[in-house]
């Protein structure tokens, strides 16, 4: 699959990322022995199509970020297959991974700490090119300036010489985006890119991301816990709970008609911007998210589920079911099998 010498990938599959029963376990060490494992991602199969934006939503600790990292090999899966552009990255060594990562970019949550504070904007944005030995210094300069104007940091010459501490949060996130797109990637993992930003500039940044996506034909994995921005920004939505994806489908469909009880509860929990509803009590899922080191048996949502079927949900793990409208749900409620 690798063309020798050029380091380019020949194979271009339709799905840029394909996860097949991916599990990421972190060992819990207790004095020389492993006491157990934290199951951050526990059997996820999902496909990200070329050119789409997949939103990965879920509460804190549900394994969204770990899943995002595993798509580009920042985290090695314990088991399962991660196919990036048709190549199983779990089998690659560091050198090959490095080549692969050229085709991917990451935007992190915290724009205040995701850029080396000792680097100027120019150096920070240029670094991926330097590391991957792309172009000479003149060419790199052009590309850095082009990326900076792509993210609307104009004039680029002005911003290039700044240090991160001289910039606002929004400007820093633009720098981080410029750094993520500088090596012309096909796939970008945006890990809560607007969570740390002011509400007033979230939309600006998301608009910018969309514009860049259309301009460069990018695929974006948008990790968030914010249903509102997911609705606004994504084509498809994947809902994650305790290391599993419980529901995947086109964003509009999922939001309009959530199938999985957890998705329903999640959408129910979104505050409504109507003051008349302020006194109405909303349905809130009881209980707390499970401990990923010691998850409940069967369906992990069953201790909190309002539609819990005794003797089934607490014993068996539900399989992912394909629904007619292109959705997948992991819930026994829709299992009308044999």
């Amino acid at each position: 699959m690798l063309v020798a010498g050029e380091g380019e990938w020949m194979n271009t599959s339709e799905n840029i990322v394909e996860l097949d029963d991916v599990r990421v376990y972190f060992p819990v060490r207790r004095f020389l022995s492993v006491a157990g494992y934290v199951r951050a991602v526990d059997g996820v199969s999902v496909v990200i199509n070329r050119g789409e934006t997949l939103a990965l939503v879920g509460e804190s600790g549900s394994g969204k970020t770990t899943l995002g990292k595993s798509t580009i090999g920042l985290v090695k899966p314990t088991s399962g297959k991660v196919l990036f552009d048709g190549v199983n990255i779990a089998e690659l060594d560091e050198k090959q991974l490095k080549k692969l990562r050229r085709k991917a970019g990451v935007i992190f949550q915290d724009p205040y700490s995701s850029i080396n504070p000792g680097f100027t904007v120019y150096r920070a944005v240029e670094e991926p090119l330097v590391i991957n030995r792309i172009g000479d210094s003149k060419e790199r300069r052009e590309r850095v300036f082009r990326a900076l104007s792509d993210v609307k940091l104009n004039p680029p010459e002005f911003f290039a010489s700044k240090y991160p501490h001289m910039l606002s949060g929004g400007q820093r996130q633009r720098v981080a985006i410029a750094r993520a797109i500088i090596s012309n990637p096909e796939f970008i993992v945006a890990d809560e890119p607007v969570t740390m930003l002011d509400a007033s500039i979230r939309v600006e940044i998301l608009l910018l991301l969309r514009e860049i996506q259309q301009k460069h034909g990018l695929t974006i994995l948008y990790i968030t816990h914010d249903m509102a921005t997911a609705k606004y920004f994504s084509d498809r939505l994947a809902v994650m709970y305790a290391g599993n994806i419980v529901e995947v489908g086109p964003t509009k469909l999922v939001l309009k008609d959530p199938k999985h009880p957890y998705t329903q509860a999640l959408i129910e929990a979104v505050p409504e911007p109507d003051p008349r509803n302020r006194l109405g009590l909303r349905k809130v899922v009881p209980g707390e998210p499970p401990n990923p080191a010691n998850p409940p048996s069967g369906c992990k949502f069953h201790p909190r589920c309002p539609q819990f079927i005794k003797g089934k949900c607490d014993l068996q793990q539900p399989n992912s079911l394909k629904l007619a409208d292109g959705r997948e749900v992991s819930c026994f409620l829709y299992d009308r099998g044999p």
């Binding site: 992190f108 700490s113 995701s114 670094e127 590391i131």
Partner: peptide
């Protein structure tokens, strides 16, 4: 720090991370 992870994400090697970052 996230910027170290960022550096790893765009392919920085061990030596570069230790010496430069």
């Amino acid at each position: 720090s996230p910027y170290i992870e960022a550096a790893r994400s765009y392919g920085a090697g061990d030596l570069r991370i230790v010496v430069i970052h």
